[in-house]
Amino acid sequence: MSFTVSLYVATSLLYVISFIRNRASTVQAFTKAKKSFLNILPDFLAVLGIIGLAFTLVSPNKIGAITGERSGILGSLLTSVIGSVTLIPGFIAFPLAKSLLDMGASIRNIALFVSTLMMVGCVTFPLESRYFGRKAALLRNVMAYIYSFFVAFLLGVIVK
C-alpha cells in the first residue's frame, strides 16, 4: 500500500512543480495522460477480467497438483504452459513455488514455472500487441518461452 501512496504523492508533487514552471505544458501533459489511459482502458478491463476468470478456474491448488505430481518431459511442458497462461502476483507466486518445492517438485520445474510466469504473458498478449504490434509481441513471448527452458536447465544444474 505504501508504494501506491508514494507513487501517487510523487506524481502529484511533480505535477505541482510542473504547473509552477509551465502551466500550458502541464495541462497538455495531463490531457495526454488522460487520453492515452482512456484509449487503452477497454483492453485493460478485458485483460483484468480474463485474469480473474483464469485465476479462478486454474487455482493455485490445481497448479500445485499438476506441477507437483508429474515429472519428466510432460510435467515440464505442462508446468511451462501453466506458467505462461497464468498471471499471478509475486507475493502469491513465490510462496506457491516454495510449497511446490517442499512437495517434491524439481528445481528445474520450479525455475520453469517462475521464469515463464514472469516473462511470458498469454493473458496480457492482446495488450502487448496493441502497443507493439502482433509480430513483435509474439516473437518476444516465444523467445522468452524458449529461454525459460534454458534458465530452468541451468538452474537445475546449479541449485542443489
Binding site: 508504494f3 501517487y8 510523487a10 495531463f30 495522460a33
Partner: peptide
C-alpha cells in the same frame, strides 16, 4: 477480477500521468 482491477488502479493511472510529464 475486482482485485486485479484495484491492483491495476494502484499503478497504471500514475504511470500514465508521469508519461504525460515525460512527453512534455
Amino acid at each position: 477480477s475486482a482485485s486485479a482491477m484495484i491492483e491495476m488502479l494502484r499503478v497504471v493511472p500514475p504511470v500514465f500521468l508521469l508519461l504525460g510529464l515525460f512527453d512534455v
